[in-house]
Design a protein around this nucleic acid. Structure first.
Length: 194
DNA sequence: TGCAAACCATAAC
DNA sequence: GTTATGGTTTGCA
């Protein structure tokens, strides 16, 4: 059985689907209907599911984590993501994306360099990311520090990023399973959009 | 700046 | 198999 929840935070609706301690899909939108539709679109067609109003313990931790992410905090997720059905390449991309620290962004090309493949392939993997915003695909932008795209809308992407400002001033690199991934302060992006 | 061509993994046919 | 399709990038005028 799959549990589905929707919750309003600020001006955004978050929705998640959980089964057996694993997050199947997480998503969000400016209205509840779209958020729930996003969930349903990504579940196997014939899977039995049920809506709940009162979250279980596992759901509560997940929703709490979502709120932390929305607030720009450093959220720790202790629920695992159901990535086993994804193509291996997508998993690598998501994994690299997940290791971008709060307050930093990186580019599609930079991820491509770290995990192999090309920038467009990375963008493709992002586009079908089932775990927004737990996997912070909003922290991936174009190489010229333009916003790029976002399934949830560019406004929302900008919103997330501006909530994650940390005042970092210079680029750095992080390790993602052996390879170096270069990241930039979010301020680099934000100052182009004020 | 702006455009065209190369880029590379998926999905659809 | 082959083709179409991106949340790109790079090079060149």
């Amino acid at each position: 059985m799959i549990e589905i929840y929707a919750q309003n935070m600020g001006c955004i609706y978050f929705a998640i689907a959980i089964s057996q301690q694993k997050i199947l899909v997480s998503t969000f939108s400016i209205d509840q209907k779209t958020a729930l539709n996003n969930i349903l679109d990504n579940l196997p067609f014939s899977t039995p599911f049920q809506f709940f109003h009162k979250p279980s313990a596992q759901a509560r931790t997940a929703l709490l984590a979502l709120k932390d992410i929305y607030d720009g905090k450093d959220a720790t997720i202790n629920l695992s993501l159901a990535t086993s059905d994804l193509p291996a390449y997508n998993r690598k991309v998501l994994n690299a994306t997940a290791s971008i620290p709060v307050g930093y962004v990186t580019s599609y090309g930079a991820i491509a360099k770290a995990v192999g493949g090309g920038a467009r392939a990375v963008g493709k993997a992002m586009a079908c990311n089932l775990f927004a915003p737990i996997v912070p695909c909003h922290r991936v932008v174009k190489s010229n520090l333009g916003l790029g795209g976002y399934a949830g809308g560019l406004q929302v992407k900008l919103e997330f990023l501006s909530r994650e400002k940390r005042g970092f001033e210079s680029p750095r690199t992080v390790e993602v399973n052996g390879a170096a991934l270069e990241v930039f302060p979010v301020e680099y992006v934000l100052k182009k959009y004020v």
